[in-house]
Amino acid sequence: MHHETFKAFMPYPPVAVAHAPTGPLSGLSFAVKDVIDVAGYPTSCGTPLKLAASGIKPSTAPVVQQLLDAGARFAGKTHTDEFAFSILGRNCHFGTPINPAAPGRIPGGSSSGSAVAVAARLVDFALGTDTGGSLRAPASYCGIFGIRPTFGRVDNSLCEPLAGSFDTVGWFARDAKMLARVGAVLLGPDTTSLPGAARFLIARSCFAVAKPETAAELEGVLRRVELRLGMLDDTTDAAPNIDDLYWAFRHMQSREAWEAHHTFIEEVEPPLAPALAERFAFGKDVTDSLVAEARALRVRFRQHLTALLGEGTVLVLPTMPAPPPFLNEADAAIEDFRNRTVRLLCLASLAGFPQVTIPVIESDSGPLGLSLLGPAGSDRSLIQLASRVAEAARERIA
């Protein structure tokens, strides 16, 4: 199938990007979300007037350069939601990438093109960014692995900001081994190492946020994992105040997004999708006192999670609340879906801890991911653990 079939890539004229002839990623190809600079290409940030103002970038983002230096070949820049400020993957200006795992349903965003490029086997792995779930959502919806690393662990300079205290560069792969190979290049050694016999703590309040039928399907996966890897624990709830966390995240993210882009929006007046215009307007109205309250809650939540996970515990939660909605889903249904989604995705964003999503269910209504959230700095051992969970999830119970 021709790669344009999936509309994963931005249609830029190809420019040669040099890579090392040998290295740990030699022979592999990768794509880059179009919010990350690559020399010789513009950076559109998913919006035509940003593209017009971009010009050809003179420098390549350090995270991309690390991959090139490790021998990986750059294959192109991929579609993103407008300003990378959505989890749906729909773009009214440049079109919506087609979800290879569930055509007719949204691919998830905002790293939509990168997820689709990996799921469609157009590249071996791809870079995306994750502020409030922009990597984890499309990974779950396209039936692939994705990691949001520990905040600040991967260099995100020369990446277009959305909300600076949350923005994180991560990547997609079709299997855990590839996720780990890329991690070996980008992450350096873990500062916290998870034991092979880690304690799995089920985040019950998160399962309660998922649609009941989704929660039930994932419970079946948990039973298979338990048979292989031992007891899963649900004695403590990791996020008892999930609604408070949701609002804290929304207030900070929206305000930071407005601060990052308001000059451009006010001066250029770009045509924004209505839902996006609403989100920016919401951010503009968030008061200093709301931001201060939200920041204080984030500090308390991070301390709570640090104590809860210690050095040997990971949180198990649904990546998304339901399978991917249809492309033409009504706005009211999308709003409910978005609210549930942000409640699940905001935990790792607020804590700044690593989260890996594992493809565990393929059904007629599209794929579902199960997530592991680990302590800060445990990214590489979290990937190893995710690999074992993925194997256990695939085993059928006799």
Results as ranks from 00 to 15, higher is better:
Arg298Ile: 09
Phe353Cys: 10
Phe264Val: 01
Arg300Met: 09
Arg298Asp: 12
Leu309Trp: 14
Arg343Ala: 02
Pro375Ser: 08
Arg298Trp: 00
Asp285Glu: 15
Leu350Tyr: 01
Pro354Ala: 09
Ala275Tyr: 11
Ala239Val: 14
Phe280Lys: 08
Thr341Met: 11
Pro367Ile: 00
Arg295Met: 10
Asn328Leu: 15
Leu315Trp: 10
Pro271Thr: 03
Asp364Met: 07
Leu317Val: 13
Ala294His: 09
Pro359Asp: 05
Val299Met: 14
Glu335Asp: 13
Gly369Ile: 01
Gly366Tyr: 00
Glu256Phe: 01
Val342Asn: 08
Met252Ala: 10
Gly312Glu: 14
Phe353Gly: 12
Ala248Asn: 06
Val316His: 00
Ala322Lys: 12
Phe301Arg: 12
His261Gln: 03
Arg298Met: 14
Ile358Met: 03
Pro375Leu: 03
Asp331Leu: 13
Ser254Gly: 15
Pro359Thr: 00
Val268Ala: 07
Asp288Leu: 12
Arg279Lys: 15
Gly374Asn: 04
Phe326Gln: 15
Asn241Thr: 06
Pro325Gln: 01
Pro274Glu: 12
Phe353His: 13
Phe301Leu: 14
Glu267Lys: 14
Pro323Val: 06
Pro324Trp: 06
Gly310Met: 02
Pro375Ile: 02
Asp243Tyr: 07
Ala351Tyr: 03
Leu345Cys: 11
Val299Ser: 14
Asp364Phe: 02
Leu368Arg: 07
Ser371Cys: 08
Glu293Arg: 15
Ala281Met: 10
Val291Phe: 03
Ala332Asn: 05
Ala277Ser: 06
Ile334Asn: 03
Ala260Phe: 05
Leu368Trp: 00
Gly352Trp: 05
Asp336Leu: 09
Glu269Cys: 13
Thr319Ile: 03
Thr313Trp: 08
Thr287Tyr: 02
